[in-house]
Design a protein around this nucleic acid. Structure first.
Ligand SMILES: NC(=O)c1ccc[n+]([C@@H]2O[C@H](COP(=O)([O-])OP(=O)(O)OC[C@H]3O[C@@H](n4cnc5c(N)ncnc54)[C@H](O)[C@@H]3O)[C@@H](O)[C@H]2O)c1
Ligand SMILES: NC(=O)c1ccc[n+]([C@@H]2O[C@H](COP(=O)([O-])OP(=O)(O)OC[C@H]3O[C@@H](n4cnc5c(N)ncnc54)[C@H](O)[C@@H]3O)[C@@H](O)[C@H]2O)c1
Lengths: 213, 213
DNA sequence: ATAACATTGTTATTTTATTAACAAGTAACG
DNA sequence: CGTTACTTGTTAATAAAATAACAATGTTAT
């Protein structure tokens, strides 16, 4: 099987995830086929882009019928998911952490939040939306035992660097950092950061531009 | 004043926001000058990129001394902020909405969350982290009265389209959508969407690739 | 049947973003 | 003072992403 042997462009991976999300909704609605321009419209992009992405993963639709929704979902799954799925831990079970756990819980079958970690004794050994919260001291132990490969960091910014370091030592493979603190991790660990303030400032900038202020 | 008359590239705007965040921290620590390679390291990018971004906003550092932290912060402010600031409303004061309000509150002087909206009577007229929650029915009225130009959508996905439509009617200028529901808004409204699941799936994909699974 | 049309798949082109290259110039040091 | 070393600013080159162009071909209408 040659499919997906080469690494896909960053942006394509993002869009595939988004396509799948909506394809699942289409499928639930009983829609069996979908055209590139329909997918495109949902995502505010061009049909060409959609076809190109789909080409890159080696799938073919049927002429004048479009893509088979179920087949496409399955193939995107083959690309994005691993067979046994990946296991995720959330470090910092505060407002954002709990909110993420609650949101995520039961969404994706192949990607599951299996543990929370917190330094506050009040939170330890509590269960949030079905996820057990462990003491931060047990990070390494639990990561190994539960076979966790991805960590989501939602501790206060001052703690983020320390948490990241311990995650790396514990053998984590990927980190999603929601704190505004920039992290330095070994290059073998895939790191992604998101800051909501940056998103909002970007919106503000373009609003300002549009208004000609 | 010619500065910033042309629209900056998307990515540059994002980075400027990030630079500022860390420059503020540097300033607080008493650091007065900073080199391009120092900024670069914080953000996992190259010094050239930093210099290029700074060039684009028309700022000049001093040779062998780097950039004046305070001046650079001020200039980025001139680019990203408006004089009187922009006012933001959060629609959906649930787990995520409250978490964002709490996080944002008192962070940025020029961008402030001034109102929450919710359809649940239990939440209406409560105050969350200093932000008054109004009934969703009052959306238009309050947006006009409070001069709100940006809306953050954190309602359940099924409600998102309706909320977006009403925001546009109410004259909002920019939307930050945290629901997984793709929205259609008038092209005059700047729309940005973020889905945490996509971020996580992207991390998972690259973890998978690295592992050679 | 045949023409007109719609839609895919793919290559070519354009645009945008990043990186490299290097001239210019200043601080620090002798 | 003169030299060395470093850092900026900018142009040029490269890479990545998006768009356009269009051939191929199945479908529908006549
Ligand atoms: N709340 C948001 O919407 C939001 C948005 C963007 C970014 N952030 C960032 O996310 C982070 C968390 O935000 P929050 O609002 O959830 O804060 P919070 O204070 O509610 O939660 C932080 C949690 O981390 C725990 N903690 C502290 N030190 C720890 C450690 N060393 N190990 C493990 N757990 C530890 C605390 O006990 C607490 O439960 C912050 O850095 C914030 O900047 C939050
Ligand atoms: N929680 C997260 O971390 C997270 C992460 C990513 C995305 N999201 C998305 O954000 C949205 C909200 O998530 P949540 O966890 O906060 O859910 P939630 O149920 O806690 O909050 C939703 C809130 O919206 C209110 N609401 C419902 N209909 C409304 C309407 N028409 N107008 C105004 N308010 C209305 C509800 O009363 C509730 O308070 C969901 O779409 C979810 O998919 C959440």
């Amino acid at each position: 099987m040659v499919i997906s042997s080469k690494t896909l462009p960053d942006k394509t991976v993002e869009r595939l995830s988004q396509y799948r999300r909506n394809l699942l909704i289409c499928l639930a609605k009983g829609k069996q086929h979908i055209f590139s321009h329909e997918i495109a419209q949902l995502h505010h992009i061009t049909p060409v882009q959609v076809r190109r992405d789909i080409m890159l993963i080696g799938y073919s639709g049927t002429l004048r019928k479009g893509y088979d929704v179920k087949e496409l979902i399955d193939l995107i799954g083959k690309i994005l998911d691993t067979d046994e799925g990946l296991r995720v831990g959330v470090i910092g079970v505060g407002n954002l952490g709990r909110s993420l756990i609650g949101y995520f819980n039961g969404k994706r079958s192949k990607l599951s939040i299996v543990a929370g970690f917190d330094a506050n004794p009040d939170k330890v050994d509590k269960v949030y939306a079905g996820v057990h919260c462990y003491h931060f001291d047990k990070l390494s132990e639990i990561i190994a035992r539960e076979n966790i490969s991805i960590g989501i960091i939602t501790v206060p910014a001052e703690q983020a660097a320390d948490v990241a370091e311990k995650l790396v030592i514990a053998g984590i493979k990927g980190i999603l950092n929601f704190t505004p603190k920039p992290l330095n991790v070994s290059p073998h660990v895939y790191l992604q950061e998101y800051d909501m303030v940056t998103s909002l400032e970007k919106v503000a900038y373009f609003v300002k531009k549009q208004a000609g202020i």
